[in-house]
Design a protein around this nucleic acid. Structure first.
Lengths: 236, 236
DNA sequence: TTTTTGAATAACTCAGACATATTTAGCCCC
DNA sequence: GGGGCTAAATATGTCTGAGTTATTCAAAAA
């Protein structure tokens, strides 16, 4: 279904990636100025063209800003497109700030229960079937850990699709992916946290019953448990 | 405070803008192929360099995808970064799909009440002062319509800042701006919808009182009234 | 039918030159 | 001495033309 055919890495893309990681990782701080194009590009061993295209990509995501004579510099953090899929991915390639991780979980805790509530009202039978299929896959015994996460993500995506809100879906897919990077990262410590199925089933049943309030609360409860499984500092 | 010094329009930027508007506006549909670089660039009367940088920008926002030999084509809509500030702005330069506008209002209806609730718990005195100042400005008699909207946006931004969640702030600023484009667009029909102050005061008071539930509900009510002022088709 | 090989093609990269805009410093004038 | 105008310095922006690489598509071979 998902034709994930890998696209060969092109120079401008890899450079944008590398510099982007440096920026979100804090090695290049807001206000820092890049050397001139000629200097910077030959320091990277690439042409000015490729370097400039990399800068265009970063600029499109709000990470840098170029002005004639003034040079190219890292923009203030509040200008960054923090929820851009690439920016999120780059953030989680390093050691993301725990505060930001909490922000994302908090955001997910707002988004997904609302999505579940919408789904409870608007879901079609086909969407219900998708949810059920993902749920069954999660319940299989031979869960290879990675397959388990994949099924879990399918479950969440099915709910998002059933919510019938494009903007919500675009947002949640980014945040959801980022959050899954975190769980993947933290999962080395404890193998399989606990059996998550009962909560998922509650969400599913509420959506089947078109009970939006119950779906909302069940999803909130599910996410709360998922967060508790991680050893993050508490927050008011 | 906000040094909004205008940056001169550069070719690659304007081209990215124009093509971006065409894509989100539907004149270039997903799957549509662009002519070769040489052909497309000279048809626009620009160099290949500028054209390529424009494509890089669009690619960074998920609107197009380039592959050697296959060419550059518009990607499927679910791959677009719909909440990217530029993409949103481009969307509202044309006649956005009413369904998508409803999606955004719905998203805002999820985000901002939650933000108000967080703000009620975490606000500092300084943030409270900012909210109060914006509120007072909204109440001034000589409201020049544009100034009124500016004060309203300041009010919402102050709440966002007080919520203490970077991800939430990044999201809401994008969506809030887009929604304000809509109100600006629709506002030609009816001059000043109604007096919005009472609702805003309720939100403010709830945040002052650290009553998160009341802040949540008051903000939800406020947004509900704002939506009702627009003549959009209802939704379940 | 399946696999492999090769040619065509479009994006990708490079290099060098020129144009443009903005900052900065210098200058003049008040 | 301060404010505004002028001009040079400089980094990004733009253009051109050549060459490289990757991917598709079709033809040929197994």
């Amino acid at each position: 279904m998902d034709d994930a055919r890998s696209t060969s890495p092109r120079i401008h893309g890899t450079i944008a990636h590398d510099i982007g990681v440096e920026i979100v990782g804090g090695v290049r701080k807001p206000g820092d100025v890049f050397g001139g194009e000629i200097e910077a590009s030959e320091q990277l061993g690439i042409s000015r063209t490729a370097y400039r295209e990399a800068i265009r990509i970063l600029s499109a995501k709000g990470l840098v800003e170029s002005r004639p004579k003034a040079g190219t510099r890292v923009t203030a953090r509040h200008r960054w497109n923090l929820l851009d899929p690439d920016v999120l991915a780059w953030t989680f390639e390093g050691e993301p700030d725990p505060e930001f991780i909490l922000d994302l979980f908090e955001l997910r805790g707002v988004i997904e229960p609302a999505a579940a509530a919408f789904a409870a009202r608007r879901r079609t039978q086909a969407q219900l079937d998708d949810m059920k299929a993902a749920l069954d896959d999660m319940g299989r015994l031979g869960l290879a850990d990675s397959e388990g996460r994949a099924a879990d993500q399918r479950f969440h995506r099915a709910i998002l699709a059933a919510a019938g809100n494009e903007a919500l879906a675009a947002l949640a897919s980014s945040v959801g992916a980022a959050v899954s990077w975190t769980t993947k990262y933290k999962q080395r410590t404890r193998a399989l946290p606990r059996d998550p199925l009962p909560d998922h089933i509650l969400v599913h049943e509420a959506i089947v019953a078109r009970d939006d309030q119950a779906a909302h609360d069940a999803m909130a409860h599910l996410l709360h448990l998922a967060l508790a499984d991680m050893d993050l500092p508490a927050r008011t």
